[in-house]
């Protein structure tokens, strides 16, 4: 009995949190998630990338961002699949894995009313992807519509590092 209890408690305490931080686990992006992202990365330079599995330009950019993440461990990397595909986590995850982004903080739109999710992020955003938001340590947001130039990301990242010195 004790053994069972102990095993159960160990599972209960260790597994769920362990799974939540497991590499590649997708987090459902719902109402309020955007504020959660902003809160949890407040004070850290953060790159938030919006993309989707059917978006042609995204397929080219995603691996570049995977490399960028590898080269810039000081930047928090967040991806959000903003396609209307709450039912395709396997495809989403597989593309993130191949792009080297499995260990990023990965979300996917999980509200069928995507307009409402986008409105919380940026009321002017009509859903075009890819889209990247660079959030500086002081909360300043720079939005890049379409594929980002890696050189621009590099420049922004350098400025973030310089700001801490």
């Amino acid at each position: 009995m004790k053994r069972y209890l102990l095993a159960a408690l160990m599972l209960l305490t260790s597994l769920p949190s362990g799974l939540a931080s497991e590499e590649g686990a997708l987090r459902p992006f719902e109402r309020g998630s955007w504020q959660q992202v902003l809160r949890s990365h407040a004070g850290h330079p953060t790159l938030v990338h919006f993309w989707g599995v059917t978006c042609g330009p995204c397929k080219i950019e995603l691996p570049q961002l995977g490399q960028f993440m590898k080269d810039h461990p000081g930047i928090d990397m967040v991806t959000i699949s903003a396609d209307l595909v709450p039912n395709l986590p396997a495809a989403t995850r597989s593309m993130l894995d191949r792009a080297g982004l499995a260990s990023a903080e990965n979300w996917f739109f999980s509200d069928g009313f995507a307009d409402r999710l986008r409105f919380e992020i940026d009321p002017a955003w009509q859903g075009d992807i890819p889209r990247t938001m660079l959030i500086a340590r002081d909360g300043t947001v720079t939005t890049i519509e379409g594929s980002a130039e890696i050189a621009d990301l590099q420049k922004w990242s350098d400025a973030q590092v310089a700001a801490t010195r």
């Binding site: 978006c55 042609g56 330009p57 009509q126 075009d128 992807i129 889209r131 379409g146």
Partner: peptide, 9 residues
Amino acid sequence: WQIAACPHH
């Protein structure tokens, strides 16, 4: 509108 993206619109 110069953009390397899918406007879906």
